[in-house]
Amino acid sequence: MKNTDPRVSVVVLTHKRPQELERTLRHLEALPEAPALIVVDNGASPATAEVVRRFERAQLVCCPGNLGAAGRNHGVELVRTPYVAFCDDDTWWEPGALARAVAVLDMYPRLGVLNAQVLVGPENRVDPACKSMAASPLDSRGLPGPRLVSFMAGAVVMRAQAFREAGGYEPRFFLGAEEVLLGQDLMAAGWDMAYVPAVQTHHHPSPARDRRARQIVTTRNRFWLAWLRLPWRLAWHETRKVWRDGRAQGVLGAALCSALAGLPWALARRRVLPRAVVEMVVKVHGGPPPARRQRLAVLPGAQR
């Protein structure tokens, strides 16, 4: 058995996809870094438990129900290393990638999140989201790559301390834009995030996906994001934008009903981001035009 790298663990999130999970664990077990492996099973499937038993270094965490992204929180509870890498049951890390990520994180003590370059499918196509991250308009001086305001949940290596300080993933978000909220809270806590393409991970998307359900939840969560963290003027601008996107996708009604049902929760937990973070978010995603100053027309002889 290889010596486990004492600085990094891998948390794998899975739900009823034992064949994909087995392929991912084969790749992870073969990594030269030999990281500790923590498999979070959303739903406690017997088939998942059977797969995990075949891998010597894999530890299983069973969630009684499907917690979505928040299942990762339970995995991080077992992490005893300073760094934690995340992947899903259809993604795995390139050999040597975790060692490179650890070296970068060691060099940049305020870097809380390192987003890898994602290679999709057997052709190893660069994920379009990575191309957007590479073109980040933010000031990236003092960082190992372009500065980010969000990240790809299954393609990052994080500082475990940063994850815990930010509170992990919000359970109500389930799956869909959940990393946006966590990224904003990380920045508000003073952590940096960067895209580092020298660190690579592979993604072979599973066909077992409900696209419409994901669109509904993502649209709902985008409404909540605006109400939870943005100044009201920007929140209103973002609400209208999400409304248009949801209508174009044909999911507005379902998403809006769900979002409004959670409005009291969102308002009770509203915590506006620091101005510097808001400015970065606007620079990346856009915002409303500057407020116009109202000028009063004064008619001749009107003043007394």
Rank of each mutant, 00 (worst) to 15 (best):
V281E: 07
R57V: 09
N115M: 05
A49Q: 07
A177T: 12
A208E: 15
V11P: 00
Q19W: 15
Q303R: 06
R247M: 10
A297F: 12
H27N: 13
G154R: 02
W92I: 01
P46F: 00
G68V: 05
G65D: 11
G145L: 05
F174Q: 00
R292D: 01
P137Q: 11
M193E: 09
M1Q: 10
L230W: 05
R270C: 12
M133L: 13
R159E: 01
R209T: 11
E238H: 04
V196E: 03
P146A: 15
R159K: 08
N3C: 13
L182Q: 00
E165I: 09
Q59V: 10
A116F: 03
E20S: 08
R240F: 07
G286H: 08
P146I: 09
F55H: 06
C257K: 11
D185E: 12
S140V: 08
L260M: 13
V284D: 09
N221T: 00
I216Q: 03
A36Y: 09
W232G: 05
K16R: 06
Q117D: 13
T91H: 05
N3M: 15
W243Q: 04
I38F: 00
V157T: 14
A34R: 08
G183N: 01
A254P: 02
C63M: 08
K241S: 06
V8H: 07
F55S: 02
N66G: 03
A248Y: 09
A103E: 12
A36W: 11
G262E: 01
P171N: 04
V272A: 03
L252E: 06
H74T: 04
R17K: 11
N66W: 06
W227S: 00
C257A: 11
V51L: 00
R293Y: 07
L267D: 10
F223T: 05
M107P: 02
Q303N: 03
L273P: 00
T239S: 10
Q19N: 15
R222P: 05
L98V: 08
L37T: 01
A134C: 11
A198L: 15
D127Q: 13
S9P: 07
D88R: 02
A254T: 08
V199R: 04
R229C: 01
T239Q: 07
W243K: 00
C62S: 13
A129E: 12
V113H: 04
R292Y: 06
P46S: 08
M187A: 14
A116Y: 01
L256K: 06
P146K: 15
V11A: 03
S206D: 08
P144L: 06
E170Q: 07
V40P: 02
E77R: 12
D139W: 04
N3S: 14
P288W: 02
V40Q: 01
L175S: 07
T219K: 01
H27E: 13
A268W: 13
V298K: 09
P6H: 08
Y83L: 09
E94F: 14
D41S: 07
G65E: 14
V120H: 10
V242M: 02
R125A: 15
S132V: 12
L256I: 10
A47C: 08
L28E: 14
G43R: 02
G75D: 02
V126G: 15
A198E: 15
P171T: 09
E22V: 07
